[in-house]
Amino acid sequence: MRRAGWVVPVLVAPLLLAAPANAHVTAVAPDAAPGAYTVVTLRVPTESATASTVGLEVDLPRDQPLAVVRNETTPGWDVVLRSTRLSTPIDNGHGKKIGEAVSTVTFTARDGSGVAPGEFAEFRLLLGPFPESGVLTLPTRQTYSDGTVVGWIEQSVDGTEADKPAPEIRLTGGGHAGAHGNSSPPAVAAAAPSGWSDSAGLAVSLVALVIAGLAFFVRGRRTEPPAPTAR
């Protein structure tokens, strides 16, 4: 039953090789819910092998303007919020109409503060209130220290993943842990660390495979005939 020792590595190897494939700029908001104010985390990996990420420009939806847009302080980065005048004023969540809304958020690294090759960074925005349903798309442009600009701005038209997909937050009327999200903007935006969803799934798979391998090994040991007793 020596084969049990290599069953787990062989099964795990394909998972490990597939893990780095999803290296897009993504948006994560576990508590996103219609009408709520939620912290959206933009996860930005540096895919270049020679240049660092030094800039990030995020477009907010103009057809679904957000009354509240606040950035978390990001050490080593400057942040600029640009507003656009609205053709139709919107409610700020407190019964007051506002005629402008933030349309673009730009993060720019100070000297030596870029995201180096092989690393990633997280940038957080407090947004709200969210639309009642649909998808909140956040087209993003990532700038590298060598001048290269990668546009994560594409949207799928046939259900397949685009080559450079724009970060998205999907909103539904129920089924979310945060379906009863905050009805007013919190005084302090919580910035609880969050892990990579893909990595979490991989970890669960690895644990399951290890347990299965151990069970196979133990079962094999039990079925082996006992060694003859020396006389």
Rank of each mutant, 00 (worst) to 15 (best):
M1E: 14
R3H: 13
G5A: 14
G5R: 11
V10E: 12
L17R: 08
A19C: 06
A19H: 13
D31I: 00
P45I: 02
T46L: 03
E47A: 13
T50C: 07
A51K: 06
V54N: 04
G55S: 12
L56G: 09
L60N: 10
L60A: 10
D63T: 15
D63I: 14
P65G: 13
R70D: 05
E72F: 02
G76P: 01
G76D: 05
V79W: 01
V80R: 11
L81W: 08
L81T: 10
R82M: 12
T84I: 07
R85D: 14
P89M: 07
G93C: 08
K97M: 13
E100W: 09
T104R: 15
T106C: 09
T108A: 14
A109S: 11
D111S: 15
S113E: 11
S113K: 08
P117A: 08
G118T: 03
E119Y: 11
F120G: 15
P129H: 00
F130A: 11
P131N: 04
G134M: 04
L136H: 00
L136I: 14
L138T: 00
S145F: 09
Q155C: 03
D158N: 11
P167E: 05
G174M: 11
N182G: 11
N182L: 12
P185L: 07
A189M: 15
A190F: 07
A203E: 08
S205N: 08
S205L: 12
L206K: 00
A208D: 04
I211S: 04
A212C: 09
F216R: 07
R219W: 08
T223N: 07
T229W: 02
